[in-house]
Design a protein around this nucleic acid. Structure first.
Lengths: 161, 161
DNA sequence: TCAAGACATCTGTGATAACAGATGTTTTCG
DNA sequence: CGAAAACATCTGTTATCACAGATGTCTTGA
């Protein structure tokens, strides 16, 4: 009985260690993202919009098809990306154009305005990231990144190639 | 120059180790939550609705004021909780009643139906959590939980007013 | 007492997420 | 060639998140 209690109550009142990790990941993600959202707000950007801008900057002047942008987003499925891009086009951050050689595809490109906003944010975002985890050592951060990557890897139980 | 490159490219193409951790946390959280969402879907529950049910079950027959439910939710600010509870009341999972002794307060209670749904889910959720992180050792999970908790701790480095 | 403030919730608006199904375009194949 | 399938995007609907402001209900202090 005592051993059972020790086993169960070793940590916080969670029903399982796995559940604790689950909640910790969610809570931490929420806290971290909140700082980014607060940083973006004065620029009139939401977090998904910021992601799109970074993706499109990375794609260069060739731009990317709507679907490709969707794939590169952590969140957001495809139907939403269309509307997200439309809103951003309205805001002048992005330009969309149907490709002449294949009229099914709509290519999105970042505008000069979009690039300007991103550039103004770059250093601030890096500083924010540094500040958020300032109290952790390099070794701890590397461990954390490795463990998180590992947590995700086998979700699909598929053996890595 | 070579040293700089070595410093920068030690890990993946991230601009900083902190940024990598940031993205890893978000990606992992998204992946983990997706499994829960999939599990809940056949029961007609969304993830916030499931959270509310667990919170209200924990509160017992006394129920909780709307605002208190909001505080206990990881996400969701207050105005949303009102509408969330209203929708859940419509679905018969929750009952809301204005308190006679203080008519400002609306108390929410879980219904028998809500309890039934939760009970049907309990084991499945535990199994899902176990399965998600099955490939990690107990030691790794403990490390991960500890590091995540630590990552969150000092977020507010600003002296409170 | 009673007006001002505090308190708790609610309403309105805009953006995002997820899903299902519709539309327009190109490719494939008999 | 022309219908069917595949493809890429778009539209419609519901739920959620976030913020601002409105409403209804106590509490407090002159």
């Amino acid at each position: 009985m005592r051993r059972l209690r020790r086993l169960i109550k070793q940590r916080k009142p969670f029903q399982s260690l796995q559940q604790e990790v689950f909640l910790e990941v969610l809570r931490t993600g929420h806290a971290l993202v909140q700082d980014l959202v607060d940083l973006l707000k004065p620029y009139g950007l939401t977090q998904p919009q910021y992601n799109v801008l970074r993706i499109l900057r990375g794609a260069g002047s060739a731009g990317l098809p709507t679907g490709e942008v969707g794939v590169r987003m952590v969140t957001s499925r495809e139907p939403d990306v269309t509307r997200l891009l439309v809103r951003m086009e309205r805001a002048g951050l992005v330009r969309r154009r149907r490709r002449p050689e294949n009229r099914r595809i709509v290519t999105a490109r970042i505008t000069a305005d979009g690039l300007r906003v991103l550039k103004a944010l770059d250093q601030a975002v890096l500083d924010m990231h540094a500040g958020q985890l300032q109290h952790m050592t390099r070794r701890e951060l590397e461990q954390l990144a490795t463990l998180l990557e590992r947590a995700r890897r086998e979700d699909t139980a598929a053996p890595t190639p």
